[in-house]
Simulated assay, not measured.
Amino acid sequence: MNDTTKAAIAAHAIAEYPREAVGLVTSVAGVETYMPCANWAATPTEHFVLAGEDYARAEDMGEIVALVHSHPGAPPRPSAADKAMCEQSGIARWVIVSLGVQADGSIAVDDWCEFGPSGYIAPLIGRQFVHGVHDCYAIVRDWYRLERGVVLPDFERRDDWWDDGHSSLYLDNYRAAGFEDVGLGAELRVGDVLLMQVRSRNGVPNHAGVYLGDGHFLHHMHGRLSGRAVWGGMWAQCLRTALRYRGSE
């Protein structure tokens, strides 16, 4: 990036502090332009969400060559969620700018980092929750990719879709992902996807996990780290149905 682009990024990041700033660098006839975007994350001091409208606006301007975001008060190292989003984005160049409070009390840029897609998949255990990136459906997708070599389709999902009065992410899409509904009474097999309903105002399953065998399952609850849990108790009481993958048969 040239100095003009970096100066525009720095100014935007400082203006947004302590929120994470996000923007896109486009190339129009070989000339770089930085486009500041809005951060639509529910917790913008912790991560960012780029609106599809901003992405489309940048595409209309020219070729998108980089996605930029800031780390307020933190090093510019990409988090696991950053690396996962980079893999999903289709953008080959990601830039992080870190900001900190200086000795005189001002906010300024501390450092920069650039990275790109590398085939990264976060460990299945201990992920931080970021909806749409590291959530309960993401862990189902990644388990199937790592353990079965199966790439399940991703589905667009807004945060709090389970409380909007009409959405049903899992029931609407499981057939397209290659699963069949085997019901509540099925004898569970390794790889079965457990659909649970946990405080969903829509009255539909809004949480999923993968049965691992030996009475354990893998899942990622909102606001918690991903992990293994014992199958039974409250989880079994929340079960609405089980899905079995048939896509390869």
Rank of each mutant, 00 (worst) to 15 (best):
R77T: 15
S70V: 03
Y211E: 00
L171P: 00
G100S: 13
R240A: 08
Y144A: 08
D163G: 02
M85W: 11
Y144I: 07
D164K: 05
V190R: 15
A29Q: 12
A41H: 11
N173Q: 08
A66G: 03
D82A: 07
L169K: 06
Q128G: 14
G105W: 06
E59L: 14
A15Q: 12
T43G: 01
A29C: 00
R246Q: 13
H47P: 01
N206D: 11
D214I: 00
R189G: 11
G119C: 06
D110L: 10
C37P: 00
Y211W: 10
L124E: 09
D154N: 13
C136Q: 06
P78F: 02
A51T: 06
C136D: 14
D135S: 12
G149F: 12
Q102I: 03
V193F: 02
D60M: 10
V182F: 00
D164M: 07
W40K: 14
D192W: 05
S168N: 15
V198G: 02
V97N: 07
V230P: 03
N39Y: 00
W143C: 06
P205C: 08
R127M: 15
R189E: 15
W112K: 10
D135W: 09
F115M: 08
V95K: 09
A186N: 06
P36Y: 01
R189L: 14
